[in-house]
């Protein structure tokens, strides 16, 4: 029930009028607080366990702070379970792969914005069609293909599979489209070659786009699970996701030579996400921009 006096007092505070009613606001805050806890508590728990001692990490308790602070989980997992090697593998494969993916996507994206290019529509359709093909469903044939190409258990295989992504190409194309055409027109009048226009006009003006696909592709490669799962058998070539999976397999902890304590398991998870957290804090803007543009026009 509203009294006229209340009405008037609301009109006075006009800039804040466009808000929920107090009760609704309280409800909203409670809801979001709950969501916040559901999101943050698991992360804190994992972090706390990873910094607890071997024995303390096994004790049944609600842990949000390290118990018997220790880094033995980290040293154990880094050395004894070869996480160090996996970290190097993941870094190498992701960095090299991302480098080439970005170059290829930028070039292909540039091709797709050439308005007068003969057969441009056919080329664009060819790229778009691959987005409709659920690549992961062909995993058995991908395995056969890699076997016949001799890519099983090789860095080249880990880099080549997934090197070209139609999503990144379309994203790059969308960024290039926002470059004013008058710039390339005047360069063309000055007889600049297409490659020159690409390198000196389009690339420098699309740095946010390049940043976005660099980060998105890196994350995709860092997290890649199915490809290493089907094309690697040698432990020296395992990437982080493969090690993480082994660590959480119930058979592994009982039949393995060394027991893996919970702190080591969680340490492996923390180590795996550190690069992603760094990336997010550095490049949040580009990531979100790329994702938003990708979903709206991809």
């Amino acid at each position: 029930m509203r009294t006229p006096i209340f009405e008037r007092s609301e009109r006075v505070s006009r800039p804040f009028r466009n808000q929920l009613r107090p009760a609704e606001r309280v409800f909203n805050w409670v809801l979001l607080m709950l969501v916040f806890l559901i999101m943050i508590l698991p992360m804190l728990n994992v972090l706390a366990i990873s910094f607890s001692s071997n024995t303390a990490s096994q004790v049944a308790d609600v842990t949000l702070w390290p118990k018997e602070f220790s880094t033995e989980g980290y040293t154990f997992i880094w050395n004894a379970r070869n996480l160090g090697q996996a970290f190097k593998n993941s870094s190498f494969v992701s960095v090299v792969g991302t480098f080439f993916t970005v170059i290829i996507s930028a070039m292909a994206g540039y091709v797709l914005i050439q308005r007068e290019l003969p057969f441009r529509k056919a080329i664009a359709t060819g790229v778009l069609i691959t987005m409709m093909i659920p690549g992961d469903l062909t995993l058995v044939s991908i395995f056969s293909l890699n076997k016949s190409l001799g890519l099983i258990d090789s860095y080249l295989g880990l880099i080549l599979n997934g090197l070209v992504s139609a999503f990144s190409i379309m994203l790059m194309r969308n960024y290039f489209l926002s470059v004013p055409e008058s710039l390339s027109e005047s360069a063309r009048i000055d007889n600049a070659s297409e490659l020159r226009i690409f390198f000196s006009i389009y690339l420098p003006l699309s740095l946010p786009g390049l940043a976005a696909i660099t980060f998105l592709d890196f994350i995709g490669k860092w997290n890649s699970f199915m490809i290493p799962l089907i094309i690697t058998t040698k432990p020296e070539l395992f990437t982080l996701p493969i090690i993480l999976r082994q660590l959480t397999q119930p058979t592994d902890s009982t039949s393995g030579v060394l027991q893996v304590y919970d702190n080591a398991r969680m340490a492996a998870i923390v180590i795996t996400v550190i690069p992603l957290l760094l990336l997010y804090s550095l490049a949040q803007r580009f990531l979100i921009g790329g994702l938003t543009l990708g979903a709206s026009k991809g």
Binding site: M39, F225, L244, I269
Partner: peptide, 19 residues
Amino acid sequence: VTFLPYLFSWTVVGGMWLQ
């Protein structure tokens, strides 16, 4: 906080929740 897990792989998120 809600966006971060989207950046993690299922090997990470799965491992977390298994624990």
